[in-house]
Amino acid sequence: MATVKFKYKGEEKEVDISKIKKVWRVGKMISFTYDEGGGKTGRGAVSEKDAPKELLQMLEKQ
């Protein structure tokens, strides 16, 4: 499965596409929420050019 690499609050993070719950576009950025486990929801964003094609496909399906 594909992963998304991004920075959040200065920390490098990587999340599996299957854990992503919601995806939306903000200008040229793709924002998303994902399941961190333990009932927590994380947030992240990547630029449109750095987003994996699976993430862009999720955006188109909504």
Rank of each mutant, 00 (worst) to 15 (best):
V23C: 12
L55M: 07
K22N: 15
G37R: 08
R43A: 05
G37A: 11
Y8H: 12
L55E: 00
A51P: 06
G27I: 04
R43H: 07
E12C: 12
A45Q: 09
V26Y: 12
G10C: 10
K61T: 12
Y8C: 15
E36K: 08
Q62F: 04
K5T: 03
G10L: 02
L59F: 09
V4R: 00
M29W: 11
E14Q: 05
D35F: 09
E48G: 07
K5Q: 03
K21P: 02
G37S: 10
E36L: 13
K61R: 06
K13G: 02
Y8D: 09
V15Q: 01
T41V: 13
I17Y: 02
P52V: 08
R25T: 10
L56V: 14
A2V: 14
E11W: 03
K19H: 14
E60N: 14
V23P: 02
E54K: 04
K13F: 07
G42V: 09
Q62R: 03
G39E: 06
K9V: 02
K53E: 15
P52K: 02
K7Q: 06
K19T: 09
W24T: 03
A51T: 11
K21I: 13
G38N: 08
V4Q: 00
M58F: 05
M1F: 10
K40L: 10
K19C: 09
E11N: 06
L55A: 01
E11H: 12
E36R: 10
Q62D: 14
F32Y: 00
M29C: 14
T3K: 13
E12N: 06
G44P: 01
K21S: 14
V4C: 02
D50C: 13
F32A: 02
G44E: 01
S31I: 05
G27L: 10
F6S: 02
I20L: 13
I30M: 11
G38H: 10
T33D: 08
Y8W: 09
Q57L: 13
Y8R: 03
G44I: 03
E48H: 06
S18P: 08
E54P: 04
E60R: 10
T33N: 12
I20P: 00
P52Q: 04
M29N: 11
L55T: 01
T41G: 09
K49G: 09
F6W: 14
T41Q: 10
I30S: 00
K7R: 09
E14V: 05
G39N: 08
K21F: 15
E14M: 04
K49E: 13
K53S: 13
D16A: 13
L55N: 00
V23G: 04
L56Y: 07
G10R: 01
K19Q: 13
T33C: 15
G39M: 07
P52C: 07
K49R: 11
A45S: 12
K7E: 05
K61Y: 07
M58T: 04
D35M: 13
M29G: 14
E12A: 10
S18N: 11
P52F: 02
E36H: 09
I30K: 00
E54G: 05
V26R: 08
L59D: 04
T41D: 07
E54D: 08
I17E: 02
E48C: 14
Y8L: 03
S31H: 14
G44S: 02
G42E: 13
K40C: 15
V23S: 09
V4N: 00
K19P: 01
Q57H: 13
S31K: 11
E12W: 14
M29I: 05
L56T: 11
K5Y: 03
K9G: 06
P52M: 04
G10P: 00
V46C: 07
R43K: 12
G37K: 06
S47H: 06
Y34D: 00
D16F: 12
K28S: 08
E48Y: 09
K13E: 01
Y34G: 00
I17T: 05
Y34M: 01
P52E: 03
F32M: 03
K28I: 05
G39W: 06
A51N: 03
D35N: 04
A2Y: 04
G44Y: 03
K7W: 08
K5F: 03
G38I: 10
K19E: 08
M58H: 08
G42L: 13
L56D: 04
K19I: 09
A2Q: 12
S18D: 06
E48N: 08
K49M: 12
D16I: 10
M1G: 15
S18I: 13
K7T: 10
V15E: 02
A51G: 07
L59H: 05
D50Q: 08
A51R: 02
F6I: 03
R25A: 13
E54T: 07
K21A: 15
L59W: 11
K21E: 14
Y34I: 02
K21N: 11
G10M: 02
T41S: 12
S47T: 07
E14A: 04
V15W: 00
S47F: 06
K7S: 07
V46P: 00
E60Y: 09
V23R: 01
A2D: 05
V15P: 00
E60S: 13
G37D: 07
E54H: 07
K49D: 14
R25L: 10
E48W: 05
V26P: 03
A2S: 07
Y8T: 03
F6G: 01
G38W: 07
T33A: 11
E14I: 06
M58S: 04
K28P: 10
G44N: 02
S31D: 06
G27F: 04
L56Q: 09
S18T: 07
V26Q: 11
K21C: 15
F6R: 00
D35E: 12
R25F: 07
L59I: 12
E11P: 01
G27H: 13
K28H: 06
V26E: 12
L55Y: 00
F6K: 00
A45Y: 14
P52A: 04
G38R: 09
I17M: 07
K40I: 15
K5G: 01
M1W: 15
S18K: 06
G42A: 09
G44T: 02
E11A: 12
I17N: 02
L59R: 03
D50V: 06
Y34S: 01
F32I: 05
T33Q: 08
A51W: 05
V46E: 01
G27V: 06
K19A: 12
K49T: 14
K61H: 12
K9M: 12
T3E: 01
D50T: 10
R25D: 03
T33S: 10
E54C: 11
K22S: 13
V23E: 01
V15C: 04
K13S: 02
M1S: 15
V4D: 00
L56R: 13
K19F: 14
I30L: 14
R43I: 05
L55I: 10
E11I: 11
I20Y: 00
I30C: 05
I30N: 01
R43L: 13
T41E: 09
